[in-house]
């Protein structure tokens, strides 16, 4: 049997995944991180993107909008800001969110804009759409 470790993915609103996995690929702030069992302790910020993990049944994925990842040799914890399961992703909603963020960036008085918040919203929406396209291809649409 392949070596495994425990993965927990939680957001402030719910617990998304808790179980045994063989591998995790997380969207780290500096680039994707592949984590195998017995990885040395690591702590990293996450950007918005796809979090993939490999269980006995094969690969599965979740969307996270950013957060913090902690790796201990046998336990990996993802503290996501918000997140959702891949099947709950909605392209229309993501496009709508992206459009709103873009409008907000262009339209308003630049002084009362919260650039950081809008930028991160925009990135989250983009990442969702990218992820949907990737999954769509894999499913053969």
């Amino acid at each position: 049997m392949a070596m495994t470790f425990h993965l927990d993915v939680v957001t402030a609103e719910q617990s998304l995944f808790s179980g045994t996995v063989e591998e995790v690929i997380a969207p780290g702030a500096m680039g994707d991180l592949g984590i195998m069992p017995r990885h040395s302790q690591l702590i990293s910020k996450l950007r918005a993107g796809e979090l993939q993990y490999k269980t006995e049944d094969g690969m599965a994925s979740l969307f996270v909008s950013g957060g913090v990842l902690e790796v201990q040799p046998h336990v990996v914890t993802v503290l996501a800001d918000t997140g959702m399961r891949a099947e709950d992703l909605d392209e229309a909603a993501a496009r709508e969110a992206m459009k709103q963020a873009q409008d907000a960036l262009q339209g308003k008085d630049p002084e009362d804009l919260d650039y950081e918040a809008i930028q991160s919203e925009l990135e989250a929406a983009k990442a969702q759409i990218e992820m949907l396209h990737r999954i769509g291809k894999a499913r053969g649409h």
């Binding site: 402030a12 780290g28 702030a29 500096m30 991180l33 040395s40 302790q41 690591l42 702590i43 990293s44 910020k45 957060g67 913090v68 503290l79 800001d81």
Partner: peptide, 27 residues
């Protein structure tokens, strides 16, 4: 004695984590 590997810098990650920790407790 062990320490984490940090990505990006340790200060940035720990700051982000601490802020979330306090927020989550108060929430």
């Amino acid at each position: 004695h062990w320490d984490y590997l940090y990505e990006p810098e340790s200060k940035e990650v720990i700051d982000a984590l601490m802020q979330r920790y306090i927020e989550s407790l108060i929430y």
